[in-house]
């Protein structure tokens, strides 16, 4: 149990890409637990790409925004590229008005395009590990 707080957010591994999706209910604890879990999984699997589907997330406040930005930076340091997919229009508008651009965070319209950008269908045919 120690070191493995569960965020209750499943993280799937597809080749060298990790796929996860945040639900509309994200309290601070789960957000932090998710960051930790994802970071550990990136490091243990040597994943090169991470897709976070946020199409069900109804709200991103500055706390969750910071989490996404930190996660992106951490993942990059571990050699993985993060794409945040499917932000809802009201969420995007609200974030911009809050003054948050999620600088450094890559976004895509939906999970499919995000996975394509991560080169997932190609990676699925090549053995993971020969990264970079």
């Amino acid at each position: 149990m120690n070191g493995h707080p569960s965020a209750g957010v499943p993280i799937l591994q597809l080749g060298d890409v990790l796929v996860s999706g945040l639900l509309n209910e994200l309290d601070d604890k789960s957000a932090l637990a998710f960051t930790e879990e994802l970071t550990e999984t990136i490091s243990s699997t040597g994943a090169r790409g991470v897709l976070i589907d946020i199409s069900r997330l109804e709200l991103i406040d500055s706390f969750v925004a910071r989490m996404l930005m930190q996660l992106t930076t951490t993942a990059r340091l571990l050699g993985a590229r993060v794409i945040v997919a499917g932000m809802r229009p009201p969420v995007a508008i609200t974030l911009v008005e809050l003054g948050i651009e999620l600088s450094g965070v890559e976004t895509s319209l939906n999970a499919e395009q995000g996975l394509t950008a991560l080169g997932w269908h190609r990676a699925a045919r090549t053995p993971a590990g020969e990264a970079r």
């Binding site: 932000m87 969420v91 995007a92 974030l95 911009v96 895509s108 319209l109 939906n110």
Partner: peptide
Amino acid sequence: VKAVRLMGA
């Protein structure tokens, strides 16, 4: 423009 980019476009 920023909001459009956040959407991934």
